[in-house]
Design a protein around this nucleic acid. Structure first.
Ligand SMILES: [Zn+2]
Ligand SMILES: [Zn+2]
Ligand SMILES: [Zn+2]
Ligand SMILES: [Zn+2]
Lengths: 162, 162
DNA sequence: TTTGATATGTTATAATATATCAATACGGAG
DNA sequence: CTCCGTATTGATATATTATAACATATCAAA
Protein backbone atom coordinates (compact mmCIF):
# COMPACT_ATOMS: atom_id res chain seq x y z
CA UNK A 1 0.00 0.00 0.00
CA UNK A 2 2.88 2.33 0.67
CA UNK A 3 6.50 2.77 -0.25
CA UNK A 4 9.27 3.54 2.16
CA UNK A 5 8.74 1.20 5.08
CA UNK A 6 8.97 -2.15 3.32
CA UNK A 7 12.25 -3.89 2.62
CA UNK A 8 13.19 -3.45 -1.01
CA UNK A 9 16.12 -3.14 -3.38
CA UNK A 10 16.81 0.51 -2.72
CA UNK A 11 19.67 0.79 -5.16
CA UNK A 12 17.29 -0.20 -7.89
CA UNK A 13 14.66 2.10 -6.37
CA UNK A 14 17.03 5.05 -6.79
CA UNK A 15 18.11 4.06 -10.29
CA UNK A 16 14.54 3.66 -11.48
CA UNK A 17 13.48 6.99 -10.03
CA UNK A 18 16.42 8.85 -11.60
CA UNK A 19 15.73 7.23 -14.95
CA UNK A 20 12.11 8.28 -14.87
CA UNK A 21 13.03 11.84 -13.97
CA UNK A 22 15.65 11.99 -16.72
CA UNK A 23 13.18 10.69 -19.26
CA UNK A 24 10.55 13.16 -18.15
CA UNK A 25 13.04 16.04 -18.37
CA UNK A 26 14.16 15.00 -21.81
CA UNK A 27 10.60 14.83 -23.06
CA UNK A 28 9.60 18.17 -21.60
CA UNK A 29 12.91 19.94 -22.27
CA UNK A 30 13.48 20.52 -18.60
CA UNK A 31 17.04 21.14 -17.55
CA UNK A 32 18.17 18.77 -14.84
CA UNK A 33 21.18 20.89 -13.98
CA UNK A 34 24.01 19.94 -11.67
CA UNK A 35 22.49 21.35 -8.48
CA UNK A 36 19.00 20.07 -9.27
CA UNK A 37 20.33 16.61 -9.97
CA UNK A 38 22.47 16.54 -6.86
CA UNK A 39 19.60 17.68 -4.63
CA UNK A 40 17.37 15.01 -6.13
CA UNK A 41 20.06 12.41 -5.50
CA UNK A 42 20.27 13.51 -1.88
CA UNK A 43 16.50 13.23 -1.50
CA UNK A 44 16.52 9.81 -3.13
CA UNK A 45 19.36 8.48 -1.01
CA UNK A 46 17.02 7.45 1.78
CA UNK A 47 13.28 7.36 2.28
CA UNK A 48 13.53 10.33 4.58
CA UNK A 49 12.67 13.96 4.33
CA UNK A 50 15.46 16.50 4.22
CA UNK A 51 15.13 20.12 5.19
CA UNK A 52 16.58 22.76 2.91
CA UNK A 53 19.34 23.42 5.41
CA UNK A 54 20.11 19.71 5.73
CA UNK A 55 20.67 19.74 2.01
CA UNK A 56 22.84 22.84 2.22
CA UNK A 57 24.92 21.15 4.91
CA UNK A 58 25.43 18.08 2.74
CA UNK A 59 26.40 20.22 -0.23
CA UNK A 60 28.79 22.14 2.00
CA UNK A 61 30.34 18.86 3.11
CA UNK A 62 30.93 18.10 -0.55
CA UNK A 63 32.68 21.44 -1.01
CA UNK A 64 29.84 23.31 -2.68
CA UNK A 65 29.76 26.75 -0.98
CA UNK A 66 26.03 26.86 -1.65
CA UNK A 67 23.81 29.54 -0.16
CA UNK A 68 20.12 29.03 0.78
CA UNK A 69 18.71 30.05 -2.63
CA UNK A 70 20.62 27.18 -4.22
CA UNK A 71 18.70 24.64 -2.19
CA UNK A 72 15.36 26.40 -2.44
CA UNK A 73 15.65 26.87 -6.19
CA UNK A 74 16.49 23.26 -6.77
CA UNK A 75 13.67 22.17 -4.49
CA UNK A 76 11.24 24.51 -6.24
CA UNK A 77 12.18 22.96 -9.55
CA UNK A 78 11.80 19.42 -8.23
CA UNK A 79 8.48 20.14 -6.54
CA UNK A 80 7.02 22.11 -9.41
CA UNK A 81 7.76 19.29 -11.80
CA UNK A 82 6.52 16.59 -9.49
CA UNK A 83 9.90 14.99 -8.75
CA UNK A 84 9.68 15.79 -5.06
CA UNK A 85 7.09 16.82 -2.53
CA UNK A 86 7.20 19.16 0.40
CA UNK A 87 6.09 17.76 3.74
CA UNK A 88 4.42 20.74 5.33
CA UNK A 89 4.26 19.23 8.77
CA UNK A 90 8.02 19.00 9.07
CA UNK A 91 9.20 21.69 6.64
CA UNK A 92 11.13 19.14 4.67
CA UNK A 93 11.28 17.60 1.25
CA UNK A 94 11.08 14.08 -0.03
CA UNK A 95 11.59 12.48 -3.43
CA UNK A 96 8.47 11.30 -5.19
CA UNK A 97 8.06 7.58 -5.72
CA UNK A 98 5.98 8.06 -8.85
CA UNK A 99 7.60 11.03 -10.49
CA UNK A 100 5.90 11.16 -13.84
CA UNK A 101 2.30 10.38 -12.96
CA UNK A 102 -0.06 13.12 -11.89
CA UNK A 103 -1.27 12.30 -8.41
CA UNK A 104 -2.44 13.60 -5.06
CA UNK A 105 0.33 12.39 -2.81
CA UNK A 106 -0.12 11.43 0.82
CA UNK A 107 2.49 10.50 3.36
CA UNK A 108 3.24 8.73 6.58
CA UNK A 109 6.04 10.37 8.53
CA UNK A 110 7.73 8.64 11.46
CA UNK A 111 8.34 11.07 14.29
CA UNK A 112 11.09 8.87 15.69
CA UNK A 113 13.31 7.86 12.77
CA UNK A 114 12.02 10.38 10.19
CA UNK A 115 11.25 7.63 7.68
CA UNK A 116 8.68 8.67 5.12
CA UNK A 117 6.38 6.51 3.08
CA UNK A 118 4.33 7.89 0.25
CA UNK A 119 1.01 6.09 0.00
CA UNK A 120 0.36 4.46 -3.33
CA UNK A 121 -3.41 4.03 -3.15
CA UNK A 122 -4.91 7.44 -2.85
CA UNK A 123 -8.54 6.45 -2.23
CA UNK A 124 -8.70 8.82 0.72
CA UNK A 125 -7.16 11.60 -1.36
CA UNK A 126 -9.81 11.17 -4.03
CA UNK A 127 -12.50 11.07 -1.35
CA UNK A 128 -11.20 14.35 0.08
CA UNK A 129 -11.20 15.90 -3.35
CA UNK A 130 -14.73 14.72 -4.00
CA UNK A 131 -15.94 16.03 -0.65
CA UNK A 132 -14.37 19.42 -1.27
CA UNK A 133 -15.84 19.67 -4.73
CA UNK A 134 -19.24 18.76 -3.33
CA UNK A 135 -18.84 21.79 -1.06
CA UNK A 136 -18.10 23.97 -4.08
CA UNK A 137 -14.40 24.27 -3.34
CA UNK A 138 -11.95 24.10 -6.24
CA UNK A 139 -8.84 22.24 -5.11
CA UNK A 140 -5.47 23.25 -6.49
CA UNK A 141 -3.26 21.46 -4.01
CA UNK A 142 -3.74 18.95 -1.22
CA UNK A 143 -1.65 18.28 1.84
CA UNK A 144 -2.23 14.81 3.25
CA UNK A 145 0.20 13.80 5.94
CA UNK A 146 0.08 11.42 8.86
CA UNK A 147 2.64 11.66 11.61
CA UNK A 148 3.26 8.85 14.03
CA UNK A 149 5.36 5.74 14.41
CA UNK A 150 6.49 3.52 11.58
CA UNK A 151 6.35 -0.25 12.11
CA UNK A 152 9.95 -0.64 13.22
CA UNK A 153 9.84 2.29 15.65
CA UNK A 154 6.71 0.86 17.25
CA UNK A 155 8.69 -2.31 17.97
CA UNK A 156 11.54 -0.26 19.37
CA UNK A 157 9.17 1.60 21.70
CA UNK A 158 7.78 -1.67 22.94
CA UNK A 159 11.29 -2.99 23.60
CA UNK A 160 12.25 -0.08 25.82
CA UNK A 161 8.99 -0.18 27.74
CA UNK A 162 9.80 -3.61 29.13
CA UNK B 1 -20.55 19.35 4.68
CA UNK B 2 -18.27 22.13 5.81
CA UNK B 3 -18.30 25.21 7.97
CA UNK B 4 -16.82 28.54 7.01
CA UNK B 5 -18.04 29.16 3.50
CA UNK B 6 -21.79 29.08 4.07
CA UNK B 7 -23.75 32.08 5.24
CA UNK B 8 -24.59 31.74 8.90
CA UNK B 9 -25.18 33.70 12.08
CA UNK B 10 -21.55 34.26 12.90
CA UNK B 11 -22.20 36.15 16.11
CA UNK B 12 -23.97 33.09 17.41
CA UNK B 13 -21.20 30.94 15.92
CA UNK B 14 -18.64 32.79 18.05
CA UNK B 15 -20.78 32.75 21.18
CA UNK B 16 -21.42 29.03 20.91
CA UNK B 17 -17.76 28.23 20.35
CA UNK B 18 -16.64 30.34 23.32
CA UNK B 19 -19.25 28.73 25.53
CA UNK B 20 -18.11 25.25 24.58
CA UNK B 21 -14.50 26.13 25.26
CA UNK B 22 -15.35 27.68 28.60
CA UNK B 23 -17.34 24.64 29.60
CA UNK B 24 -14.55 22.32 28.53
CA UNK B 25 -12.00 24.34 30.49
CA UNK B 26 -14.16 24.37 33.58
CA UNK B 27 -14.64 20.62 33.44
CA UNK B 28 -10.95 19.88 32.89
CA UNK B 29 -9.63 22.63 35.16
CA UNK B 30 -7.87 24.31 32.28
CA UNK B 31 -7.02 27.95 32.75
CA UNK B 32 -8.41 30.10 29.99
CA UNK B 33 -6.25 33.04 30.93
CA UNK B 34 -6.46 36.53 29.53
CA UNK B 35 -4.03 36.02 26.68
CA UNK B 36 -5.38 32.60 25.76
CA UNK B 37 -8.91 33.90 25.71
CA UNK B 38 -8.03 36.95 23.66
CA UNK B 39 -6.11 34.88 21.10
CA UNK B 40 -9.05 32.52 20.80
CA UNK B 41 -11.39 35.45 20.30
CA UNK B 42 -9.16 36.76 17.53
CA UNK B 43 -9.15 33.36 15.85
CA UNK B 44 -12.92 33.13 16.18
CA UNK B 45 -13.57 36.59 14.83
CA UNK B 46 -13.52 35.40 11.23
CA UNK B 47 -13.32 32.05 9.52
CA UNK B 48 -9.77 32.79 8.51
CA UNK B 49 -6.40 31.61 9.63
CA UNK B 50 -4.14 34.00 11.49
CA UNK B 51 -0.38 33.72 11.71
CA UNK B 52 1.29 34.12 15.09
CA UNK B 53 2.65 37.50 14.02
CA UNK B 54 -0.77 38.62 12.78
CA UNK B 55 -2.01 37.91 16.28
CA UNK B 56 0.91 39.76 17.83
CA UNK B 57 0.15 42.74 15.61
CA UNK B 58 -3.48 42.77 16.70
CA UNK B 59 -2.48 42.50 20.33
CA UNK B 60 -0.02 45.33 19.81
CA UNK B 61 -2.79 47.43 18.28
CA UNK B 62 -4.76 46.84 21.47
CA UNK B 63 -1.82 48.06 23.54
CA UNK B 64 -0.53 44.67 24.67
CA UNK B 65 3.28 44.90 24.26
CA UNK B 66 3.29 41.14 23.64
CA UNK B 67 6.41 39.33 22.46
CA UNK B 68 6.36 36.21 20.21
CA UNK B 69 6.25 33.68 23.06
CA UNK B 70 2.96 35.19 24.18
CA UNK B 71 1.30 34.26 20.91
CA UNK B 72 2.99 30.89 20.56
CA UNK B 73 2.20 29.89 24.13
CA UNK B 74 -1.45 30.80 23.76
CA UNK B 75 -1.62 28.99 20.44
CA UNK B 76 0.08 25.94 21.91
CA UNK B 77 -2.52 25.85 24.65
CA UNK B 78 -5.40 26.22 22.22
CA UNK B 79 -4.05 23.61 19.83
CA UNK B 80 -3.09 21.13 22.51
CA UNK B 81 -6.57 21.25 23.97
CA UNK B 82 -8.32 21.08 20.62
CA UNK B 83 -9.69 24.63 20.60
CA UNK B 84 -7.71 25.58 17.52
CA UNK B 85 -5.80 23.88 14.75
CA UNK B 86 -2.63 24.75 12.95
CA UNK B 87 -2.80 24.92 9.18
CA UNK B 88 0.60 23.61 8.19
CA UNK B 89 0.33 24.71 4.61
CA UNK B 90 0.09 28.37 5.52
CA UNK B 91 1.76 28.45 8.95
CA UNK B 92 -1.35 29.85 10.50
CA UNK B 93 -3.95 29.00 13.09
CA UNK B 94 -7.70 28.68 13.00
CA UNK B 95 -10.35 28.18 15.66
CA UNK B 96 -11.94 24.76 15.78
CA UNK B 97 -15.60 24.51 14.91
CA UNK B 98 -16.13 21.49 17.14
CA UNK B 99 -13.92 22.23 20.08
CA UNK B 100 -14.85 19.52 22.51
CA UNK B 101 -15.18 16.48 20.28
CA UNK B 102 -12.16 14.38 19.44
CA UNK B 103 -11.72 14.43 15.68
CA UNK B 104 -9.33 14.32 12.76
CA UNK B 105 -9.83 17.76 11.29
CA UNK B 106 -9.51 18.60 7.63
CA UNK B 107 -9.62 21.97 5.96
CA UNK B 108 -10.24 23.87 2.78
CA UNK B 109 -8.16 27.02 2.52
CA UNK B 110 -8.87 29.70 -0.06
CA UNK B 111 -5.66 31.02 -1.56
CA UNK B 112 -7.37 34.22 -2.60
CA UNK B 113 -9.37 35.45 0.40
CA UNK B 114 -7.82 33.20 3.08
CA UNK B 115 -11.21 31.88 4.15
CA UNK B 116 -10.98 28.54 5.88
CA UNK B 117 -13.63 25.86 6.21
CA UNK B 118 -13.20 22.89 8.46
CA UNK B 119 -14.86 19.83 6.99
CA UNK B 120 -17.48 18.23 9.18
CA UNK B 121 -17.67 14.77 7.62
CA UNK B 122 -14.30 13.19 7.95
CA UNK B 123 -14.89 10.06 5.87
CA UNK B 124 -11.65 10.69 3.99
CA UNK B 125 -9.81 11.24 7.25
CA UNK B 126 -11.01 7.92 8.59
CA UNK B 127 -10.08 6.27 5.29
CA UNK B 128 -6.59 7.70 5.54
CA UNK B 129 -6.27 6.47 9.08
CA UNK B 130 -7.46 3.02 8.09
CA UNK B 131 -5.06 2.86 5.16
CA UNK B 132 -2.14 3.89 7.34
CA UNK B 133 -3.01 1.34 9.99
CA UNK B 134 -3.26 -1.32 7.32
CA UNK B 135 0.35 -0.44 6.44
CA UNK B 136 1.36 -0.91 10.07
CA UNK B 137 1.74 2.80 10.74
CA UNK B 138 0.52 4.18 14.05
CA UNK B 139 -0.99 7.60 13.50
CA UNK B 140 -0.62 10.24 16.17
CA UNK B 141 -1.57 13.29 14.13
CA UNK B 142 -2.99 13.93 10.68
CA UNK B 143 -2.67 16.95 8.45
CA UNK B 144 -5.43 17.14 5.87
CA UNK B 145 -5.58 20.39 3.99
CA UNK B 146 -6.84 21.43 0.59
CA UNK B 147 -5.79 24.71 -0.90
CA UNK B 148 -7.66 26.32 -3.75
CA UNK B 149 -10.55 28.65 -4.40
CA UNK B 150 -13.62 28.98 -2.25
CA UNK B 151 -16.99 29.29 -3.99
CA UNK B 152 -17.10 33.07 -3.91
CA UNK B 153 -13.55 33.54 -5.13
CA UNK B 154 -14.24 31.22 -8.06
CA UNK B 155 -17.05 33.58 -9.07
CA UNK B 156 -14.75 36.56 -8.70
CA UNK B 157 -12.13 34.95 -10.94
CA UNK B 158 -14.73 34.30 -13.58
CA UNK B 159 -15.86 37.93 -13.41
CA UNK B 160 -12.41 39.31 -14.08
CA UNK B 161 -11.75 36.89 -16.90
CA UNK B 162 -14.55 38.39 -18.97
C1' DT C 1 1.85 30.37 54.54
C1' DT C 2 4.88 27.54 52.52
C1' DT C 3 5.27 25.02 48.53
C1' DG C 4 5.16 23.11 43.95
C1' DA C 5 3.31 23.65 39.68
C1' DT C 6 1.68 26.50 36.06
C1' DA C 7 1.78 30.76 33.58
C1' DT C 8 3.92 35.15 32.16
C1' DG C 9 7.66 38.68 31.10
C1' DT C 10 11.71 39.51 28.65
C1' DT C 11 15.69 39.01 25.90
C1' DA C 12 17.98 36.68 22.61
C1' DT C 13 18.45 33.59 18.90
C1' DA C 14 17.34 29.57 15.95
C1' DA C 15 15.22 27.78 11.83
C1' DT C 16 12.95 28.40 7.58
C1' DA C 17 12.33 31.04 3.39
C1' DT C 18 12.49 34.91 0.01
C1' DA C 19 13.93 39.48 -2.45
C1' DT C 20 17.11 41.52 -5.28
C1' DC C 21 20.35 42.27 -8.73
C1' DA C 22 24.48 41.18 -11.21
C1' DA C 23 26.85 37.62 -13.81
C1' DT C 24 26.78 33.53 -16.57
C1' DA C 25 25.22 29.75 -19.42
C1' DC C 26 22.11 27.86 -22.67
C1' DG C 27 19.78 27.18 -26.93
C1' DG C 28 17.46 28.62 -30.94
C1' DA C 29 17.18 32.19 -34.99
C1' DG C 30 19.51 34.10 -38.40
C1' DC D 1 29.14 30.54 -35.98
C1' DT D 2 27.38 34.50 -33.45
C1' DC D 3 23.87 37.10 -31.74
C1' DC D 4 20.02 37.47 -28.74
C1' DG D 5 16.56 36.52 -25.38
C1' DT D 6 15.70 33.62 -21.58
C1' DA D 7 16.77 30.57 -17.89
C1' DT D 8 19.92 29.69 -14.40
C1' DT D 9 23.33 30.72 -11.00
C1' DG D 10 26.06 33.61 -7.64
C1' DA D 11 26.02 36.47 -3.85
C1' DT D 12 24.27 39.44 -0.28
C1' DA D 13 20.83 40.83 2.48
C1' DT D 14 16.63 40.35 4.75
C1' DA D 15 11.97 38.54 5.86
C1' DT D 16 9.20 35.21 8.30
C1' DT D 17 8.25 31.70 11.57
C1' DA D 18 9.39 29.60 15.90
C1' DT D 19 11.94 28.40 20.18
C1' DA D 20 15.52 28.61 24.14
C1' DA D 21 16.47 30.29 28.41
C1' DC D 22 15.75 32.20 32.70
C1' DA D 23 13.66 35.31 35.89
C1' DT D 24 9.26 36.64 37.95
C1' DA D 25 4.53 36.17 39.08
C1' DT D 26 0.28 33.71 40.10
C1' DC D 27 -2.42 29.96 41.65
C1' DA D 28 -4.17 26.35 44.36
C1' DA D 29 -3.52 22.90 47.47
C1' DA D 30 -1.36 21.10 51.74
ZN1 LIG E 1 13.82 2.79 -1.89
ZN1 LIG F 1 10.33 5.08 12.25
ZN1 LIG G 1 -19.02 31.54 11.95
ZN1 LIG H 1 -11.96 32.87 -1.17
Amino acid sequence: MASGFEAHDHTDCIRTAMARVEKHCAEKSLRLTKSRRRVLELLLSEHKALGAYDILAQLAAEGWNAQPPVAYRALDFLVKNGFAHKLERVNAYVACINPDADHLPSFMICRDCDAVAEARSPAHARAFKAAAEAAGFEIEKTVLEAQGLCPSCQSAENETQR
